[in-house]
Write a protein that binds this DNA or RNA. Structure first.
Lengths: 183, 183
DNA sequence: CTCCGTATCGTCCAGGTCGGACGGTTTGGA
DNA sequence: TCCAAACCGTCCGACCTGGACGATACGGAG
């Protein structure tokens, strides 16, 4: 019941349980995999540590299975629901970084020769294109019901980002590389 | 001289020194602030810890100032330059996550009421619009010389991302909120 | 000359985060 | 009966994070 400031992962766990009911850490892991994990990942060890912290603070209630099982199920407490709703209502802080290793390499591309740069550009464009296709596939498979409205919306932001990235990498070699300008 | 696998921060430090010469941690901090810090931030404590690690591994050489000053200057060793070039040449791994707190809130917006959602949408659109303007300002101020070609390119990716985000948040309320559709 | 505000410069630390190694358990099929 | 695969969980060292804290330099106001 102490008072650390909750992290995004905290709210992720609270939110996942609020929306789809009580869960074990393993179940959380699977919920993450199919949804929010697309734009916000973390190792599964977090999904064991964080609920334990939240339970200590009274935001989740822990229920052990009867026998000598290791399984624990967490459900939301009123305090937990309150914390989640307060977070949703409060002004959004925090940075929106684009931690893209490909972009970091591009930033330092002056240290590489043109051939390496060309290879970087090609692989990045291909990677983003692949991700774009994957998102499109997921989108077409997502039911357009009430339940998944918000998941669908976030997915669409991912789609737009990948579209931007694909067109960026397609054009960037024109800005940077000499020779191959068809103009 | 051990053999941990270098992190992106490692290459950031190596790259910054490779491009603009030897530096003290504080100088690194300022180089970061004006450039790559726009899309990849980290606390300044990293800029003290990481060069120390790199020096231990022989990728940087540390030079203390004569007198009892605390100042240390780091310069690139041949091994360091080699590591940087190898990284630039190797296939790019690593995820491209969109860790946007606003997006995370949107994902769980089912737990909030419409008024809160509307407020979230409004503030997010405004925030991205502000960032977009800031990037445009920086872009117009960036000299189009050889030195800053790559910095300019990465900035443009940031620009496109913000454009995508602005249009996303402008449209999202139309998908999600009932009432106010002008159609 | 002294004082003070502002920039410069650096250390330290408690937590959170990371990826992955490792191991036990359950289930279903050969 | 046995094995493989999926299921489920713990643990760990290293790293990252944000910020508190403080020392030092320097210019200008009084």
């Amino acid at each position: 019941m102490s008072s650390r400031t909750l992290t995004p992962v905290s709210y992720l766990v609270l939110g996942l349980i609020a929306e789809r009911g009580p869960a074990t850490p393993y179940e959380l892991k699977r919920r993450v995999a199919g949804s929010v994990g697309h734009f916000w990942t973390f190792p599964h060890s977090q999904l064991y540590a964080e609920p334990a912290r939240l339970a200590r603070e009274g935001l989740l209630a822990e229920q052990r299975e009867p026998a000598g099982r290791r399984r624990r199920t967490y459900r939301l407490t009123d305090a937990g629901r309150g914390a989640l709703r307060r977070w949703l209502a409060e002004p959004t802080t925090g940075s929106v970084e684009l931690r893209d290793p490909g972009l970091l390499k591009l930033f330092f591309a002056g240290q590489a020769d043109d051939e390496e740069l060309a290879r970087l550009v090609a692989t990045q464009e291909a990677a983003h294109r692949a991700r774009l296709r994957e998102y499109e596939r997921i989108e077409s498979g997502l039911a357009v019901d009430q339940r998944s409205r918000y998941a669908l919306a976030t997915l669409r932001m991912g789609l737009r980002h990948e579209q931007a990235a694909v067109s960026f990498w397609r054009e960037v070699s024109g800005w940077l590389l000499p020779g191959d300008d068809a103009a």
